[in-house]
Design a protein around this nucleic acid. Structure first.
Lengths: 72, 72
DNA sequence: ATATAATGGAATATATAAATTACATAGATG
DNA sequence: CATCTATGTAATTTATATATTCCATTATAT
């Protein structure tokens, strides 16, 4: 699973710590999500999107074969 | 948390059982998500969207006060 | 050179998503 | 009526998201 969270977070000028506080989780959780090592809960995804002012579709996606072709 | 899953699933002519098999979970999990009693995993949400041919934003959202106004 | 801020990562504990099994009900259909 | 399909729900178990605590590293600033 891939995501744009790190870019989106920096765009709104938040540290991992600040974002974590805004959405009510720990910094480690944010870190692991950005690293793609977690499969977060929908509710948390929605809270994060709200905090960084993006939609779900803008931040989260699964990298499928069809996507890879489109990326070149 | 609210969602449009039931409508989207019926639109593509799938039973809960069929959708569950497609995305690799049990029927109960689909049922609970449709009823809004689960907070599903992002990965599962993405699989579901793929199966019913919708985007995340089209199916899942949090009902906020600002949303409620817009619905009238 | 040494604080300090921001991030990555590991190890263990806790909460909860999801599986499993089982039973109940409503609708359709023979 | 009896049967089959689709769905709701409950109890228990298992897997894993998240918390907690701690240490390491990099970059910036003093």
């Amino acid at each position: 699973m891939k995501n744009n969270l790190k870019v989106a977070r920096v765009q709104v000028n938040l540290t991992q710590q600040q974002l974590a506080e805004k959405v009510g989780v720990t910094r480690q959780t944010i870190s692991l999500i950005e690293k793609g090592k977690y499969n977060p809960t929908l509710k948390l995804c929605l809270e994060i999107c709200y905090a960084v002012n993006k939609t779900l579709d803008e931040i989260f996606w699964i990298e499928r074969e069809s996507d890879k072709i489109a990326k070149n």
